[in-house]
């Protein structure tokens, strides 16, 4: 547990020290939200209807930049090999990195919510529930994303490979998060929010367990 805490502290510190890059990714996500409106047109009702989808597409696109860079420091000067020599399991290193990435993505998502509210007039008063969905969705993107980032950071064409591998896999996260966010914005007369939240929870449990088991294999060779 202390190894996990130490590795998490290291990863959060890395995110903090590269905050200029975090700000650039936020700018990318916000500009993506701006551009989506040009694809649909200036119809306020249509924009409001699709606001949840735009928010999550913006976060998904931004997540590839955050995730692709998450192993950058470890790959420089072969630091990952040094980390694996420490008395900490590879699983602890994975969970620390995945938690740090999930928190970074959740912060990014929470930061994009006001942009969505301003651009698409899609406000909700259920702020804690919305932040919970953002956290669950970010965790769903982070678990497989961190594992794939560990692989693709050592491969050629890593910027292309990561989204190619990640996007089809996170279709359930996108569906669950978009539906849950839309229900929070437009109201939930049929009580469907619970089902979509459950889908996100199931995805997170399966992928956090499976990816944690497989990470050791990815870095051992």
């Amino acid at each position: 547990m202390s190894a996990l805490a130490a590795a998490l502290r290291k990863d959060l510190l890395l995110h903090w020290r590269t905050r200029a890059q975090v700000a650039a990714v936020y700018g990318f996500g916000a500009s993506a939200l701006l551009l989506f409106s040009f694809a649909v047109g200036p119809n306020a009702a249509v924009l409001r209807e699709h606001a949840a989808g735009f928010l999550w597409l913006g976060l998904l696109l931004s997540s590839t930049l955050t995730l692709a860079e998450s192993f950058h420091a470890e790959m420089e000067h072969r630091a990952l090999e040094g980390l694996l020599l420490l008395p900490a399991s590879a699983r602890a290193l994975y969970y620390a990195k995945a938690v740090a990435n999930a928190l970074a993505l959740a912060a990014l998502g929470a930061g994009l919510v006001p942009v969505m509210v301003v651009l698409y007039d899609a406000a909700t008063l259920r702020i804690p529930a919305l932040l919970g969905i953002v956290l669950l969705g970010s965790a769903g993107l982070s678990a497989p994303g961190t594992l794939y980032a560990a692989m693709t950071s050592q491969a050629r064409a890593r910027q292309t490979l990561l989204p190619l591998l990640l996007f089809p896999l996170v279709v359930p996260v996108l569906l669950g998060a978009v539906k849950a966010t839309a229900l929070l914005i437009h109201g939930d007369p049929m009580g469907q929010l619970r089902s979509w939240t459950l889908l996100l929870v199931c995805f997170d449990v399966i992928h956090w367990s499976l990816c944690g088991l497989l990470f050791e294999r990815v870095v051992e060779d």
Binding site: L147, Y148, M151, A155, L169, H207, L210, L214, R217, V218
Partner: peptide
């Protein structure tokens, strides 16, 4: 890596 990706 391809085996890990296929399992997931």
């Amino acid at each position: 890596w391809s085996a890990v990706a296929a399992v997931i």
